[in-house]
């Protein structure tokens, strides 16, 4: 029992840390394309970790194993890349300027051109 409680605590702390990292990335990275990285990766792992903590918590509370939270985790991991892809497509469409020292910046019009 006590081990499971420790496990819950550890997963909660990991989750909170990565959610915070994702938001700090959103706060301080310099251009839009770089900002896109932090929430898609860090926040997804953060929410996954907190949901794992929730699974462990409800399992040791005694109402039998509850793995419903697994569905939310699955949903987040499926949708996060799609959201990121749509946002970056939209950013290319409105010609959001990347940081000037970005590699291959001259190819941007090439990438954008889908006609």
């Amino acid at each position: 029992m006590i081990i499971l409680e420790y496990l819950t605590v550890i997963f909660l702390l990991i989750g909170g840390f990565f959610l915070l990292v994702g938001s700090i990335g959103l706060f301080r990275l310099p251009d839009f394309y770089m900002r896109l990285h932090a929430p898609t990766k860090a926040s997804t792992l953060g929410i996954g970790s907190i949901l794992v903590a929730s699974i462990i918590f409800y399992s040791f509370k005694g109402d039998g194993v509850s793995i419903k939270e697994f569905l939310i985790t699955l949903f987040m991991f499926l949708t996060a890349p799609i959201t990121a892809h749509m946002l970056s497509k939209a950013a290319l469409h409105v010609r959001q300027p990347p940081r000037p020292d970005t590699l291959n910046i001259d190819q941007l019009e090439n990438i954008r051109d889908r006609k």
């Binding site: 909170g16 959103l26 959201t83």
Partner: peptide
């Protein structure tokens, strides 16, 4: 993007 991240954080808060 900020709103999307807020959604994720809100889910964590509810859990």
């Amino acid at each position: 993007l900020a709103l999307d991240t807020m959604y994720i954080n809100a889910i964590a808060l509810i859990v």
